Amino acid sequence: MGTAGDAYDNAMCESFFGTLEAELLSREHFATHEQARRRIFSFLEGWYNVRRLHSSIGYCSPLEFENLNAKTKIASPSELPTAGQRHGREKRPAARPWTTRDSTLNGG
């Protein structure tokens, strides 16, 4: 197991599935797989993502949170927060070799 905040911490996922089970799956019975799929989709897109208050985003609905952030956000020219930053090969100094292999070794 990992520590909080790393890839092995699935607390938010567990919280979501707990909510899904408590608020939808334990209250309804589905006759077919397709009926369950459609009902889960409508639960997510019609209530959970639009109107339900989430504690991790200041007790706002995700839609409200996105609207608030869209108003206060100053977008970069390419709409990405890392626009203009150098990445990959451009970031490395010119004298640094591109591979870790020693070119003097044979067959390596």
Rank of each mutant, 00 (worst) to 15 (best):
W98D: 12
M12L: 00
Q35L: 08
D6Y: 10
W98C: 11
P62D: 01
N106D: 03
D6C: 07
Y8D: 04
A83F: 15
P97C: 07
E23T: 02
F30G: 02
T72I: 13
S103N: 09
R38Y: 09
G107F: 09
L105F: 04
H54V: 01
G58T: 00
L105Y: 07
S78C: 14
C13D: 03
R89W: 12
K73I: 06
T104F: 11
S61Y: 01
I57C: 03
H33R: 10
L80F: 09
D102K: 14
K91N: 13
T19Q: 14
Y8E: 00
N69R: 08
T100R: 14
T104K: 13
T3Q: 14
G108R: 12
F43P: 01
L105K: 09
T3E: 12
P77R: 15
E34N: 01
C13W: 02
K71L: 04
F17G: 04
E45N: 15
P93G: 07
G46T: 10
S15G: 05
F65V: 00
R96N: 15
S55C: 08
T3Y: 15
S26V: 10
A31Y: 13
N10E: 11
N49Q: 02
R86P: 04
T32Q: 03
H29R: 14
A70Q: 06
G18M: 12
L105S: 02
Q35D: 13
D9V: 03
R52S: 00
A95N: 14
N106Q: 06
L53V: 00
S55G: 11
H87W: 15
F30R: 05
T104Q: 15
S15W: 03
N67A: 15
E66F: 15
E28R: 09
S15M: 07
A83N: 14
R37G: 01
R27D: 07
S42R: 06
K73P: 00
M1S: 13
Y48T: 00
E79A: 05
S61G: 05
C13H: 09
F65K: 00
M12N: 01
N49C: 01
H29A: 14
H54L: 05
T99N: 09
E79T: 07
L24R: 06
K73A: 11
A75L: 07
A94G: 12
R27V: 03
K71Y: 01
C60Q: 05
E64Q: 02
F65T: 01
K91F: 14
G84K: 07
A83M: 12
L68K: 04
V50Y: 08
A4K: 11
T99V: 10
Q35F: 10
F41I: 03
N106R: 07
N10F: 07
E79W: 08
A83P: 05
T104W: 13
S61I: 02
F43L: 02
L63C: 04
N49E: 00
Q85C: 09
R52W: 00
G88R: 07
T99P: 02
R38H: 12
D102F: 08
I57K: 02
T32R: 06
T82Q: 12
L105Q: 06
E28N: 06
E34F: 03
P93F: 06
A22K: 04
G46N: 11
T32F: 05
H54E: 05
I74K: 08
L25T: 03
E14G: 06
G5Y: 10
K71R: 03
T3W: 10
H87N: 14
E64G: 01
P77G: 11
V50C: 05
G84V: 06
S61V: 01
